[in-house]
Each structure stands twice: as C-alpha cells, then as structure tokens.
Amino acid sequence: MNIVVAMKQIPDLQQVRIRNRQPVLDGVPMTFGSIDKNALETALQLKEAAGGNVIVISAGTEELEDTVKEALAAGADEAYLVLDDELENIESSVSAHLLAELIKQIENIGIILFGEGSGDNYSGQVGPRIAEILGLPEVGYVCDIELEDSRVKVTRSLEDCEEIVRVNLPAVLTIMADINEPRIPSVTQILKAGKKPKQILEVEDIGLDLKGDKKIITLSSLAPENKRKQITVKNGEELVDALLTEGVIRR
C-alpha cells in the first residue's frame, strides 16, 4: 500500500522577522508547513505499523527540489514533485489540480494525508478539493487513525466531542496538529535524502495554464493593533477596582 502525503513548501516561519510591518523573507530557508510535518509523521507511523511506502507529493518553485530533502530525511521513501517558479502564491484550486494529477501517477494508493491547513495561508481547501476531483471519501479534523484491512477507523476531534468514523480505502484524511510530534531526522537519513527516488514533472506535462490571475497575493497578515487603555494604579486595591470597573473580574 502506498501512503501519500501532500506537503507545501513555505519559508521557515521561525526565521522570518517583521520589519516595517512586512515580513522579511530574504535569506530565510524554505521548509514545510508544520501540520504537513504531522501528516508525514502520521504516514511514517502507519508504515511502521503496517508496512507500505510513504510518498511525498508537492508543487512549488525550483527550490522545492532541495526542500523536499527534509521530508525524505524524516523517512519518506519517494517524492513526486511539480517544479516551476511560476508556482509561487498559486491559488488552492490550482494546487488541487496539480496535486490530483500527481496522485493519478501513483498506483495502489491506500491513504492520502493532508495537514489540516498549510503553514502560510491555512485555507484548508486542497485536501477536500482533491477528494472531490478524484471521487474519494474525505475525513477532516483527524486526531487518530487505526488501520483495519481495507478500511480505517478514524477519530475526529470536534470542538466539544470526538467522533469516530469508519471509511473505506482509498481515502483522503486531513489531520490535526496535535495528532503526534514529528521526529527529528538522523544524520545519515539527512545525507541519504538526496539519493532517494524523485519523480519530477513540469507544469506542461499536466496541461495546466498558470498564466493569468490564478494567484493569491497576501497584502497583510498582522494582528490588529491593540489600543491599550494605559490605566495607572498605585496599589493592589486600585488594581482590583480598575479590573472591576473594566469588567475583567466580578465580585
């Protein structure tokens, strides 16, 4: 059984600095979205439990060929990539089409895993869209997966309850960030990553036209500025009074 994990290349958010209310992306290395890494970890654990092959799929700029080493180092066996510098900021429907075409190239698929949302835009659309395109069942908010022959038992984490569902394979699952903790790759795995098999496709091979306006440009994504009330207090009593007046606490 092949376990497919879709991952999205994004700048390493820990190394992005904000300057003049804009992110500084110069010299920031690329990595994968953090929930994507949970999805990969899920795939690796399924493989360790039941065997199979973990295949990473991704579409992105030419740098992706280097970035994907991170997933291969963590334990993925193979990668299917679409590389094109035009693929920056593409819109979710385009990503879904590209990735669906990649998935069609892979045989004997059991599970297709997505992070619940990408590390940058967090639209959460690509997984469901692909399920639709491929005509597969889709289960979201997954926090636990149990393999049962040709089915899986999946726990969904809903706001105040958990729902357990059973679904036939192949299926698309989008997983939650708290499902696991991704492993740290070992040194030899890192060094071997570059030698693992990679299938690289061009956008033309898939027959998509990237020109035009199928892009989303983020203009700003800052937290709203808080206007502080700047209330001065001299002692604990005044502080309690102020908190009461502001309705932060009640007697």
Binding site: P29, E70, A73, I184, P185, V187, L191
Partner: peptide
C-alpha cells in the same frame, strides 16, 4: 547546503526540545 542546514536544524530542534 540543504544537508548542512538540516543537520544544524536537527541539532537545534533536539536541543530546544
């Protein structure tokens, strides 16, 4: 190189965690 970067990151992640 990507490999050097990943080794550095593996050490950093391990240290932080």
């Amino acid at each position: 190189s990507k490999e050097e970067e990943l080794i550095q990151k593996a050490a950093r992640d391990f240290a932080d965690k």
